[in-house]
Design a protein around this nucleic acid. Structure first.
Lengths: 150, 150
DNA sequence: GCTTTACCTCAAGTGCTCTTGAGGTTTTAT
DNA sequence: ATAAAACCTCAAGAGCACTTGAGGTAAAGC
């Protein structure tokens, strides 16, 4: 198994488009793992590339590292996501993504209306309304903003 | 003019759904202004409500406070956005919003594909590809993510 | 008048996602 | 063999958007 771990941090960083320090950071959070060579330098197995891809894809969807870690932890034996695992994860995260898109579309459409009406002073405008969170935020809303009034 | 400034921080905070500390914070950034009463307490004019609405709306669109401040500063005489000003601002920010939506849709659609193909190991997948920034990021891309590899 | 509530300032703390730097070791290239 | 490049650890710093706390003043309610 050690002979399969032959990627240095620098190489992984370059191939994934992240900085070496980011890999250290992810490792410190338990998001990725590495083995060490004789001189104590990190050596990665190729599967770390997919793992990092999953992290980056999830981030683009607005998933936090904490949630990503939780998702990884829920995999059968905490293994690197396989193709099937990835499908599970992506289906799950896709929900949040769709909600986010829907939210922004709603905002954009409201904006369309507001451009004509200057309705910022009206209580029923979805842009004006400060309580406007996200329609029904029971399940997937974890992925979305929840700051402001809480 | 002073007699028009009769809103206390607490009232403004409640009406806008933000905390008092947030108003202090915004003021420290120069995003809003206040007058003071005899006892040195803040008193706001009603227009601050619209101003805060604009801030909140912009934030929902992914605009940073820095950019909001810049946008305010570019208004004719740095005044609180009027209806017309708001239309200018919203048209401008709407571009970024549309880009953001387009980006997330692209991501979602790629995800659709990936659910079937498990293509994370392929270089041409827009989700896998770490260099995937946002198509053409020359103008409105300011509003969008630009972290990772820079 | 007295108490409670609201407000004031300024400094420091929070949470997230990393980045930078110092001081030192290992690998690689020539 | 030696110099340069890559790597190591650990602590601290950065940027964003706020929040909390301490110590004290002002306004409101009864």
């Amino acid at each position: 198994m050690l002979e399969e771990a032959n990627l240095s941090v620098g190489k992984v960083a370059k191939r994934c488009g992240v900085k070496v320090s980011t890999l250290h950071f992810y490792e410190s959070l338990g998001l990725i793992k590495s083995l060490r060579n004789q001189g104590n330098q990190r050596r990665y197995m190729r599967e770390v590339l997919r793992r990092i891809s999953v992290i980056k894809a999830a981030q683009k969807m607005g998933v936090s590292l904490e949630e990503i870690k939780a998702a990884f932890a829920n995999l059968p034996d905490n293994r690197t996501p396989t193709k099937d695992d990835w499908q599970q994860l992506s289906r799950y995260w896709q929900k949040g993504l769709n909600q986010k898109i829907a939210y922004l579309e709603k905002l954009r459409d409201s904006l369309d209306g507001c451009i004509g009406c200057g309705c910022l002073s009206m209580k029923n405008c979805p842009i004006y309304n400060p309580e406007d969170k996200l329609g029904d935020n029971d399940s997937g809303a974890v992925l979305l903003e929840r700051s402001a009034t809480e």
